[in-house]
Each structure stands twice: as C-alpha cells, then as structure tokens.
Amino acid sequence: MKSLVRLLLPLALLAALLSPGPATAARTSSAQAGALDGQAEAMRRLSFMIGTWAGPGWTVTPSGTRQEFLQTERVRRQAGDLVISVEGQGRDKADPRTIVDSALAVINYNESTGQYRWEAFSRGYVTTVVPVVGDGTFQWSLQTPAYTSRYTLTFTPTTWHEIGETTVDGGQTWHQNFQMDLRRLA
C-alpha cells in the first residue's frame, strides 16, 4: 500500500502543478471575454448592413453586353452576433424566373489582427479578402494577375448603392462594370 501511495502522490502533485489554478482560469476567461467584446464592438460597426434589401442592378458580361437584373440581399447576424452573413440572389430583369447569380458571404472580425475578413462564395469560387469598413461604407477588392476588381458599397438608413470597377493598369484607370441600387425592405 505504501508503494502505491509513493507512486500516486508524485503523479497527483504533477497533475496539480500542470493544471491551471483559479487565477489562471480567471485570466483566461477575462482575456477571452475581452476579445469577444472587441469582436462584438467591431461587428456592431456593420449594423448599417443588417436587413433585407431589393432593387435593380446591372453588370457587364464577359462578352461586353450589359445585363440587367433584380437583386435581393439578406444580411443577418449569426453565431452570437460575431458573424454577419450576406445572401444574395440576382434574377434576370427580362425573365425574373431565371436566376443569374447566387452568392453567400460571411464577415467576421479577428481581434488578434485587428482586421475584418470577407469570405464570399459564388459560381464555384471562394474569395477571402480584408475589406475596408467606414461609416456607412464597405469596400472589398479582388486581385488577379490580369486585373483588379473592387466593389464599393454605400449605405443610408434606407438605401444600398454599390458599384463594381475593374482596372488592368494597376489602378491608374478604373472602369465601372457593375451597379446595384437597393432599398431596405426590412
């Protein structure tokens, strides 16, 4: 029995030394709560986007023709208000039964880097970028070896205006190839 106690006592002491005590657990919980507070505050800065939006838009297709569409966007808070989802669907203006685009994006904030992240899924592609967030504005860009596209969203309490532009010369000249003018439904 004494040999069992001699064996278990050092193991128990080792376990006690390796496990976090109440002070360590409190510091960890406090740090996690602080990070969540920072994330929550950053996500509240995007409140202007939340809602259901609809309206007309247009885009220039790869063939160079202008296609008009009717767009719906549903922007919701998710995951304890620390993530925002953006679900968009565009329908052909001439035939609203035809879906011309469907996309999903999520926005979150990383307290460690101090940056937002925009991750969008559309037409089999995934785009992950760091957007620029302002008062009532949101801008994200996509860079490829051949061109850069940027999308600038401007909000009022009742409107969402968005333009898309492309450059092939490193940003010296931009050409608009997309626009949406949406109204808040809810």
Score class of each variant (00 low, 15 high):
89 Q>P: 08
84 I>E: 00
143 Q>H: 13
137 T>I: 12
91 R>W: 04
114 G>N: 00
48 F>C: 03
66 R>Q: 11
119 E>M: 14
142 L>H: 10
15 A>D: 03
57 G>Q: 05
8 L>R: 07
14 L>D: 07
9 L>D: 06
78 Q>E: 13
63 S>R: 11
123 R>P: 03
67 Q>G: 06
135 D>P: 10
108 N>I: 00
28 T>C: 03
93 K>Y: 07
141 S>Q: 08
31 A>E: 07
65 T>N: 13
135 D>Q: 14
100 V>R: 06
145 P>G: 12
144 T>D: 03
59 T>L: 15
53 W>Q: 03
101 D>M: 15
109 Y>G: 02
71 Q>W: 09
36 L>V: 06
98 T>W: 08
100 V>T: 15
118 W>I: 09
81 D>P: 01
19 S>R: 10
72 T>H: 11
4 L>K: 08
14 L>W: 05
139 Q>D: 13
11 L>F: 11
110 N>A: 10
72 T>C: 05
33 A>Y: 00
105 A>I: 05
100 V>E: 06
27 R>K: 13
103 A>V: 15
92 D>V: 03
29 S>L: 06
53 W>Y: 08
121 F>E: 11
44 R>E: 02
38 G>M: 00
138 F>S: 04
119 E>C: 12
90 G>L: 02
129 V>F: 02
110 N>E: 06
68 E>A: 14
88 G>L: 06
108 N>Y: 09
129 V>D: 03
90 G>D: 13
107 I>T: 07
116 Y>F: 15
21 G>C: 10
133 V>H: 01
18 L>W: 14
53 W>L: 05
62 P>N: 04
